[in-house]
Amino acid sequence: MLEPSFLFGQFVGGLSIAMFLFLIASGLALIFGVLRILNFAHGSFYMIGAYLAWQIVHILDAKTGGAFWLAVFGAATAVAILGALIERFLLRPLYGREELYQLLFTYALVLVLADAAKIIWGTQQLSVSRPPSLAGASTIFGAVVPHYNLVIMALGPMVAALVWFILHRTHIGRMVRAAALDREMLGALGADVGRLYTLMFAFGSFLAGLAGALVTPIKTVNPGMDVEIIVEAFIVIVIGGLGSLWGAFFGALIYGQFLSFGILIFPRFSIFSVFALMAIILVIRPWGLFGKPLSR
């Protein structure tokens, strides 16, 4: 039972869960890290991304890999634009208010977007096939790994590296980090903080839309997927540390492995090990593995 090939299979399974979760959690962490907004609607952007990807594949009516990747990036870009519009016209007036208002707003957005998706796409379960070139699977060390999951596992670290590069090696990244530290000071220095926020919110939304579009070949697109994912994404960023990119990355890795190997120990309580881990972390390190304690 505990053959190496089986253990490796569990490890890879956990890894692919982790990379999907990282794609969705990274945007959530970024938006919280810079804008200090806990965006409940992040799961809704993920859902819209999935629906849009389905829609584009459906319109193109082609089962080629090209159509699929076009749909993925088209959907993510459209969600980014939606995010930018929401930030600019709906969220911006709330920045001066108490945090509770922003929380309520993003929660209201969850309800509005869920209803909007239902009006546009109905309640039908929708599904996108894997791109043909990635439909197969390979046996690696005795474990079967679908090619599509391999691509996702490669994409996760690439996205992490890209975001890190943008934040730490570009001009705009320096501005973003400065805005996270002291928004007023940055504004006083003449930077357009408003535009920076819109850009960051759009980028976070892009990542949510990307995750939603990429998940369509392995998951049903249906109403309710928004709420399902947001809980898991929150667990990931709580484990990793709110607002930390690497926190989201390692939080997702830990989540995936705990789920994968947890079910071998507690088969009756699949989610138990993950929740137990979160509880322990909240007790001994409430700011998460990679977060920083609030200085206030």
């Binding site: 039972m1 692919s16 999951n149 998951k219 309710g224 088969p267």
Partner: peptide, 22 residues
């Protein structure tokens, strides 16, 4: 073997692997 994923599990891969191992 009996697998018990939570309702609304996003990824069944570990459950599927664990089941096939039996």
């Amino acid at each position: 073997d009996q697998q018990w994923p939570k309702l609304g599990e996003a990824d069944y891969t570990p459950f599927i692997n664990a089941q096939l191992a039996k």
